Simulated assay, not measured.
Amino acid sequence: MNVAIVRIVAELRSIVAAWHREGLKIAVVPTMGALHEGHLSLVSAALAKADRVIVTLFVNPKQFNNAEDLAAYPRTEQEDAAKLASVGAHILYAPDAADMYPQGFATKVSVSGPSDGLCGAFRPGHFDGVATVVTKLFLQTGADLAFFGEKDFQQLHVVRRLVRDLDIPIEIIGNPTVRESDGLAMSSRNTRLSSAERRTAPKLPEILFKTARRLTSGELVERTLREARQAILAAGFSKVEYLELRADDDLVSIATLNRPARLLVAAWLGQTRLIDNVEVRSPQRLDQILKQAAA
């Protein structure tokens, strides 16, 4: 069975209104397409909690601060639609940019706090673009639930704060990062890696998990992070934008591991920017994450 492709917001709202009249629970999975197993895991999670699932596909120009990066972003709508049909999604909502941002569009949603630092420091305006498009998608879909991956952990915090501050009646559900068999976090950007770079890329999560273990064993945060940065560069990465320890619940930077935390990284491999994060809790919890990723 094919997934229905909808491009016009009025048509989408008409369908959603009928679903609401039937008392159905609706979930949305926002994406920029080029879908992989990580995205499909979000759809499966949504199907387990909702009666109807809308997957949005919109390569949002407002969250790119590099025109070349926007132009190079993979666009695979037909393949994406086939994948969504195979897992049982109900609608693929793929609006045009001219409809999302018509002439004269003048509104920007900006979320301070969780957008500060990390990717926010290196991608000016990125999270304003994310917050603006997500707000529109929530209003357009009228969904009760929204599913996001924890790989984009800062983005997840931004969206949660946005919903809380603006009283948008939608529940935000984060799902664990899905990894390749060698540990690399699944990402649409992985397709841009050369064969040699793809062999190097798993060194990033390998170093990240090793660093997390060191931190849980009580090693000093500053020294451990400094040595991890050096290890990432020695592994073949050209630049480490950030490697930081942040509180898991509010993203506040911490210098001592005295609460559940996240270790977050962004590093360049050739022309590709990779991000990742891992929980920093007990060694047993890290082992559990690795086993789940390899399953």
Rank of each mutant, 00 (worst) to 15 (best):
A106Q: 13
A295M: 09
L264Q: 05
I207S: 04
D116S: 14
F209R: 14
W19F: 14
R75L: 03
R198Q: 10
I168N: 02
T191P: 02
A81L: 08
L274W: 03
A295W: 06
K291F: 02
A266R: 02
I173M: 09
L24G: 01
P61L: 15
A82P: 10
S110K: 05
R164T: 06
A121W: 05
D250G: 03
G125L: 11
E79V: 13
V28E: 00
V158Q: 00
A46S: 12
I207E: 04
N60S: 06
M100W: 03
S195C: 05
H126Q: 04
L233S: 07
P95K: 10
R192T: 09
E37W: 05
Q154W: 06
D116N: 15
G142H: 10
T177Y: 01
R164S: 15
A85I: 12
V6T: 10
V43S: 01
A234F: 01
I254Y: 02
P102W: 13
L233A: 05
A94D: 03
A267E: 01
H20Y: 07
W19A: 13
L145D: 09
T224D: 01
T135E: 07
E171C: 06
E37T: 10
V278C: 15
E79M: 12
D96R: 12
D96Q: 11
G149H: 06
T224P: 04
Q63W: 03
R213C: 15
D182A: 05
W19E: 13
F153H: 14
L156H: 02
M1T: 08
A50F: 02
P74F: 11
L40I: 03
F153S: 07
A228E: 03
I15M: 09
L145T: 11
A234D: 15
Q271W: 06
A143L: 11
V87S: 12
I15V: 15
R192C: 09
A97W: 05
T272G: 04
L274R: 02
K83H: 11
A231F: 05
F122L: 08
F127A: 07
A234Q: 14
N258M: 11
A82H: 06
R285N: 12
E22F: 11
Y242N: 00
S41Q: 09
Q78A: 07
Q103S: 11
T224V: 10
A94E: 06
I289N: 02
V29K: 00
D250F: 08
A67F: 05
I91M: 08
D96I: 06
K83Q: 15
I170M: 14
T224Q: 10
K108F: 12
A185R: 02
K151D: 07
G218I: 06
A97G: 05
P169S: 12
F138G: 00
A146L: 04
A18K: 09
L257N: 00
L257P: 00
R7Y: 11
A94G: 07
N2D: 14
P205Q: 02
L204F: 13
A89G: 01
L70N: 04
